[in-house]
Amino acid sequence: MGIKSFQGARKQQNATESTQLKVRDYMSTNLITFKPHQSVQEVVEALIKNKISGGPVVNDNQELVGIISEGDCLKQLSESRYYNMPLEHDNVEKRMATNVETIDGNMDVFDAANKFLQSKRRRFPIVENGKLIGQISQKDILIAALSLKGENWNSTTKGGS
């Protein structure tokens, strides 16, 4: 990774080209996923244990079928109390959001930042050839911006000091 940064800094005449950061370079690939048949209680336990606020739901072929979040689980919890039904009687498939917006792994991180701002979402799954390959979060975009600052913004301003 150090060599790649060095080469990027040398191409100062073409700064915009060398600094293009792609979503796929900053996405998380080691994801905690859920299955449609899992109980909401299992999801709640996984969210708490892993300190996450939600996750993608995939079928047995690793195809994205939905997203389940803390909010979905809270809604189920509220309804279970109202209808006097325990958590373990409800599953992910009944609670997950199925209208899932994805993002292209080749998208520039700055375009992805705009997409986050417009959608008010915390994360986007990345799908390739129908299969879930990763997820990008707002924090991942911030990490990409910091790496750009460290590698390129400083290198173009050295001459002025």
Score class of each variant (00 low, 15 high):
residue 78 S to Y: 10
residue 91 N to V: 05
residue 98 T to D: 04
residue 121 R to P: 00
residue 102 T to K: 14
residue 114 N to S: 14
residue 125 P to K: 10
residue 87 L to N: 04
residue 33 T to E: 03
residue 55 G to P: 02
residue 102 T to M: 12
residue 59 N to A: 05
residue 103 I to M: 15
residue 86 P to V: 03
residue 122 R to S: 08
residue 81 R to A: 09
residue 77 L to R: 09
residue 89 H to V: 03
residue 35 K to W: 01
residue 86 P to H: 03
residue 32 I to P: 00
residue 64 L to V: 13
residue 118 Q to I: 08
residue 105 G to I: 09
residue 51 K to Y: 03
residue 66 G to A: 07
residue 62 Q to R: 15
residue 63 E to N: 14
residue 41 Q to F: 10
residue 87 L to S: 07
residue 111 D to T: 13
residue 98 T to S: 09
residue 41 Q to L: 14
residue 73 C to P: 04
residue 45 E to W: 04
residue 31 L to H: 07
residue 33 T to Q: 05
residue 63 E to Q: 15
residue 97 A to L: 01
residue 36 P to Q: 02
residue 37 H to G: 03
residue 42 E to N: 10
residue 96 M to W: 02
residue 51 K to N: 13
residue 36 P to S: 02
residue 129 N to A: 12
residue 121 R to S: 12
residue 33 T to V: 11
residue 106 N to D: 15
residue 116 F to E: 13
residue 103 I to P: 07
residue 33 T to Y: 00
residue 105 G to C: 08
residue 115 K to H: 09
residue 88 E to P: 00
residue 53 S to L: 01
residue 96 M to A: 03
residue 48 I to Y: 04
residue 50 N to S: 06
residue 54 G to P: 00
residue 60 D to P: 00
residue 100 V to G: 01
residue 108 D to V: 13
residue 69 S to P: 04
residue 84 N to D: 11
residue 42 E to T: 10
residue 134 G to W: 08
residue 129 N to K: 14
residue 88 E to Y: 03
residue 111 D to C: 10
residue 101 E to D: 13
residue 110 F to G: 11
residue 106 N to V: 06
residue 79 E to T: 03
residue 54 G to H: 00
residue 112 A to Q: 12
residue 98 T to H: 05
residue 72 D to R: 05
residue 117 L to P: 02
residue 106 N to T: 14
residue 49 K to A: 04
residue 51 K to A: 09
residue 88 E to I: 02
residue 114 N to R: 15
residue 92 V to P: 04
residue 96 M to E: 07
residue 87 L to R: 06
residue 101 E to C: 04
residue 36 P to D: 02
residue 109 V to I: 15
residue 105 G to Q: 12
residue 39 S to M: 04
residue 135 Q to D: 12
residue 46 A to Q: 11
residue 71 G to V: 11
residue 120 K to S: 11
residue 32 I to D: 02
residue 32 I to R: 05
residue 31 L to V: 07
residue 65 V to D: 09
residue 87 L to Y: 05
residue 61 N to F: 11
residue 69 S to L: 05
residue 40 V to Y: 04
residue 113 A to I: 08
residue 37 H to V: 02
residue 46 A to D: 12
residue 68 I to V: 15
residue 125 P to L: 07
residue 124 F to T: 05
residue 57 V to S: 02
residue 127 V to P: 10
residue 53 S to F: 00
residue 57 V to H: 01
residue 95 R to Q: 08
residue 82 Y to W: 03
residue 41 Q to Y: 12
residue 104 D to L: 08
residue 33 T to H: 00
residue 56 P to S: 10
residue 97 A to G: 06
residue 35 K to C: 01
residue 112 A to G: 08
residue 60 D to Q: 13
residue 101 E to T: 15
residue 54 G to Q: 01
residue 43 V to T: 05
residue 63 E to I: 07
residue 75 K to C: 02
residue 126 I to N: 04
residue 119 S to K: 15
residue 92 V to N: 01
residue 74 L to M: 15
residue 31 L to Q: 08
residue 85 M to N: 10
residue 43 V to E: 03
residue 109 V to E: 14
residue 111 D to R: 15
residue 128 E to V: 11
residue 100 V to Y: 04
residue 40 V to T: 11
residue 74 L to Q: 09
residue 77 L to A: 13
residue 75 K to S: 10
residue 115 K to R: 15
residue 57 V to Y: 04
residue 124 F to M: 06
